[in-house]
Design a protein around this nucleic acid. Structure first.
Lengths: 204, 204
DNA sequence: TGAGCCGCCTGACAATTGTCACGCCGGACC
DNA sequence: GGTCCGGCGTGACAATTGTCAGGCGGCTCA
């Protein structure tokens, strides 16, 4: 293990990616060796540059940061993953940890703490925002069944029941029923509200 | 005019704010003199630190970046404003320019270009992503009437007609009618879709 | 094996949403 | 003045959405 920690940065917004690179580059013991803008570029870049720690955003095109975490753990088990995200959704945290992430940081945290988080992750420790961990525990597992989640996902853009039914090869009655169950479980009054709530909790 | 350009940074995400500060701090001719995390802190901080250029995010709590732009132009007309945003919504661009912004940059742009954008704005030039400008021109003004936009805003979270009607002191029939008109104008099939489209275009 | 539970599927019915025709008012134009 | 808009407000009606009762199959557990 050399003196500097090698980093891979993944974020779909080039400006943010570059800014994070500048921020971490100020630390003498950190070195950014690769930057990518999409989830499916993470593993190839990691294989080429062999980073010690990968900072992955959750919201990315083609493959999200959580899938990328899982793929990276398989391809390069020695590289540790620190997930960095805009939204502190309980489900994101739980799923990221299950996928093998070592840490989870929201973009609200002070800039000064990021370098420390990287060092801790590199040292083998787990880094999780305590407040977020509490939320995650409180929210618990998704109460939605597979079909319910699937129907909610298909309804995201406000698609009518008929379209969802065709897409999933179900009768309209079935779709309405799953939707109704999801509305009940999310304590919503609407499909629209149900989608919002499920999304906010990272259940979709 | 001194040798260095004094900057104010406003972004609600502390990590991004700090990272941008690090990025711009690398440039010898730029100096970050103030950082804030909410729109209503922009003017007080600007009055205290007298920046040459203010970088404002659009998405901020309490007061958004566009309102903050307008307020800053009134309070400190010599400070130029560069709006930096996650979403390249045509309406955002138009409204930001009307509010007196000198430039508009989305967070997708390469990090290397940001410092240049700042220098150009400081020099009195306007900085706008050409592709975004074309979109803005194509999308044009909002086709929605005041009431229609108001009803759409109130329907955002998926609130039922009855609730919207109470909130705006209208009959349910009226609310449904405005909603119907909005659905027609946005070429949507739903109120949900109409809200999404209007939001994406920055019409709300 | 059989009872109980759960996820999934479906159609009938009630509630909500979207459409339409209409009336009212104020501003632009002749 | 008169006419022609456009935005706004309203209720009746049609279409969509949400609820409910019930059927089917797989799984667990006694």
């Amino acid at each position: 293990m050399s003196g500097t920690i090698r980093l891979l940065l993944a974020d779909d917004q080039a400006l943010v990616r570059g800014a994070l690179s500048a921020l971490l580059g100020l630390e003498p013991d950190l070195e950014v060796v690769a930057e990518v803008g999409a989830g499916d570029e993470v593993v190839p870049a990691a294989l080429e540059h062999r980073p010690d720690v990968a900072l992955l955003d959750v919201e990315m095109p083609r493959m999200d940061g959580i899938e990328a975490t899982a793929a990276l753990r398989v391809a390069l088990p020695t590289t540790r993953v620190l997930v960095v995200t805009t939204f502190g959704r309980p489900g994101y945290l739980r799923r990221a940890m299950q996928a093998g992430a070592s840490g989870f940081v929201v973009k609200d945290t002070p800039a000064a703490q990021l370098a420390d988080a990287v060092r801790r992750v590199h040292a083998g420790l787990r880094v999780v925002d305590p407040a977020l961990a509490a939320d995650s525990l409180a929210a618990g597992e998704s109460p939605l069944s597979n079909r319910e989640a699937e129907v909610l996902r298909a309804s995201r853009g406000g698609a009518p029941v008929a379209a969802v039914a065709r897409q999933l090869h179900l009768s309209e009655g079935t779709v309405r029923n799953h939707l109704s169950a999801a509305i009940g479980k999310t304590l919503a009054a609407n499909r629209t509200e149900a989608v919002r709530i499920a999304d906010d909790n990272g259940w979709l």
